[in-house]
């Protein structure tokens, strides 16, 4: 049973990441999560949105990113949806940090960090949308 759901739509630009972090902070805090858990969710959602901007939309601005936060009795679920290029889960590999350092990319190991910060991170492609669904359990 869903207790509470909040939604936010932003254009695909990193200048809206601050707004996304405030959105997560407000609703995760209101859902009763600790300051540390809120910080972790804030960063995971920031990384997910950055990946959408840089990879799904290839840096093209003005494309929609839908974020929803649903509070359940046992967890918080955050879903990030976009209409950009399909995320190839099979092609994703854990990053080699030293190789990564030689490039100036900024979103390459975001997925690695998201998986550390959240209890689950799943990607789906359906109906012309990419969907990243992440959950944080209540401890």
């Amino acid at each position: 049973m869903v207790v509470d759901t909040h939604t936010l739509t932003i254009p695909s630009s990193t200048s809206f990441l601050e707004e996304v972090r405030e959105f997560v902070t407000t609703h995760a805090t209101n859902a009763g999560f600790s300051e540390n858990a809120v910080e972790q969710m804030k960063m995971a959602v920031d990384e997910a949105c950055t990946n959408v901007i840089e990879h799904s939309y290839q840096g093209k601005s003005g494309q929609p990113i839908d974020i929803s936060i649903s509070s359940y009795p046992d967890k918080l679920m955050v879903t990030i949806r976009d209409k950009g290029l399909k995320f190839d889960r099979e092609a994703y590999k854990e990053p080699d940090l030293l190789l990564y350092a030689k490039s100036k990319k900024s979103g390459g190991f975001g997925v690695h960090i998201m998986r550390k910060l959240m209890d689950s991170v799943e990607y789906k492609n359906a109906g012309g949308f990419n969907e990243c669904c992440m959950t944080k359990n209540r401890s």
Binding site: E47, L98, Y100, A101, K105, G108, I113
Partner: peptide, 16 residues
């Protein structure tokens, strides 16, 4: 107050 992986990559690149 806050750093994301984009910020980490700046430091990692500089260290290298």
């Amino acid at each position: 107050d806050y750093i994301s992986s984009a910020g980490l990559s700046v430091l990692l690149h500089t260290q290298q």
